[in-house]
Design a protein around this nucleic acid. Sequence first.
DNA 1: GCCAACGTTGGC
DNA 2: GCCAACGTTGGC
Length: 149
Amino acid sequence: MRYWLMKSEPSEYSIDDLARDGFVPWYGVRNYQARNFMRDQMRVGDGVLFYHSTCAEPGIAGLAEVATPAYPDATQFDPDGNYFDPKATEDTPRWFNVDVKVVRKTRLMPLSEIREYPELANMRVLAKGNRLSITPVDPDEWRFIVGRL
DNA sequence: GCCAACGTTGGC
DNA sequence: GCCAACGTTGGC
């Protein structure tokens, strides 16, 4: 069992959207490291911190979990979509995604609050210049955060 | 809107 | 295989 932090822009897809839909295919990831996390390391049942980024109040907004193994991201094959990849084919897909299902919306734990806890100082989401949309979370960090939501 | 940081691309 | 140029991310 692993733990993850996954970023979403709430203007695109928020925790309220996830609470409404129940689950969502995490499509559109076009970064190899983030893809590899989904394809190679995620397992059904892994815990997910749902993080709002690029918004007025960035921070952790809810809890979710990995709901499916990784499978080819359908959007890479759609020439009219924003996520089309001309180098991907059905036989040799380049991008993968899992489905994520809601556990619960929580209070918002703002980025500014995350920074205040020495216990969370090593989180990758706090690292300067970190741009990864999916990052692993240590079990200790997970427990610390969940206990305060 | 700014800008630092980072990943990717492509010429050589 | 290097590396400059470019595009994107994301907090502020």
